[in-house]
Design a binder for these strands. Structure first.
Lengths: 201, 201
DNA sequence: TATTAACAAACGATAATCGTATATATTTTA
DNA sequence: TAAAATATATACGATTATCGTTTGTTAATA
């Protein structure tokens, strides 16, 4: 038996997946601190012993779940950046991804990540977040070099700018002015495009 | 000072409202058992002493909140029944009210009400629920007497029948068959109308 | 001044949760 | 089948959270 089989078993293991899945669901709804290990086990039909076979404690389980969430986000990010789409199409895709990424990690989850200080949870999250940002920065720099973005524009400005626009989406009053939420998305996107792109691609 | 002033003060009191409001929000999201008294106080910017001035414990606070939720439901129910709308319009309004009533008390809240056995929470809820049902039953009986509902139809059947139809709305697969969720609502409503009404009103 | 209301801090009592240990059942493997 | 590995239920002591109360203080009000 290769040791690799052992590793495979841990990841693919049914019980592991049960714990992982139900914990993800519960953390999603209630945050980390409101969910107990015993509750996770009961909900996943798994004994507490089995839990401690896979995870040393609740925080490490949370880290693993966050890893998974962020990993799949990074994967999609890479897919978009290295696709054969045009620049503005990529920009649009990145924009939409960030938009729906708001739902990708629930508010309760986020809150608890910041509350649980001293556990290294926030630092862990920040490290992963940094990867995503550097990926996007590289993409913008490359796009600027290729002439898709005006030379004078600072990359940091684009980041801050698009972050602000994303925040617009949370404005209930503004949202109510549009027949469909997508109309606001389109309007914001147009603003982003005609604001920073040169037109030649 | 009349004793009435005292009573008024308790209900209108700012602190009371703060506790009541934040507790309602928290119970809504997380259910009763996941929320602590101390958390409510902290969130409402109120000392624990003030809490116990108004409520003996968490369960009684929950009961008060449930009372408020159900009271406003009963009020709307009465408004609909005693309005000058036509029978089918009333039926439609009752149907829609029950439908959105699903959101009126959150799942987490409901769950905890049933879990907290021995606290009288469920019994309290059931008693209030019974009022609503008797109101609706009276409305149906009256409507049958007036000839809006066929004589052979049993009232209990109508109740069970409409409950079943409401449950249809929870069927994700069925819901996906319609372009808009409202289309399923309309279809269900038509079925209800042409199934039990006589046509003359 | 006396009274009232609200507060923070601390308290003991109780209950929940954690992480571990043990003994039993089930499944895998030799 | 027998031995070994794995999963489970249960129970345990230790820790932590929560409850409801008590105490002493502050600020506003009558």
């Amino acid at each position: 038996m290769h040791p690799k089989h052992k590793v495979m078993n841990v990841v693919i293991n049914k019980k592991y997946q049960d714990i992982f899945g139900t914990a993800k669901d519960l953390f999603w709804k209630y945050g980390i601190k409101r969910v107990s290990i015993e509750e996770i086990c009961k909900e996943a039909n798994v004994s507490k012993m089995t839990f401690y076979k896979f995870f040393p404690n609740k925080i490490e389980l949370a880290k693993t779940i966050i890893d998974d969430l962020v990993d799949s986000s990074l994967e999609r990010l890479n897919e978009i950046i290295h696709s054969d789409k045009s620049f503005s199409e990529k920009l649009k895709a990145l924009f939409l991804m960030k938009l729906e990424g708001m739902n990708n990690i629930s508010m309760e989850f986020i809150k608890d990540i910041h509350i649980n200080q001293g556990t290294g949870l926030k630092e862990h999250m920040d490290k992963l977040q940094a990867k995503a940002i550097s990926l996007i920065v590289e993409f913008y720099k490359d796009s600027q070099k290729k002439g898709y973005i005006r030379k004078e524009v600072k990359i940091d400005f684009i980041l801050a700018y698009s972050a602000q626009i994303i925040k617009l989406m949370e404005d209930e009053h503004l949202l109510s002015q549009y027949e469909q939420p997508q109309d606001l998305v389109i309007e914001s996107m147009n603003l982003l495009f005609y604001g920073i792109v040169t037109g030649n691609e």
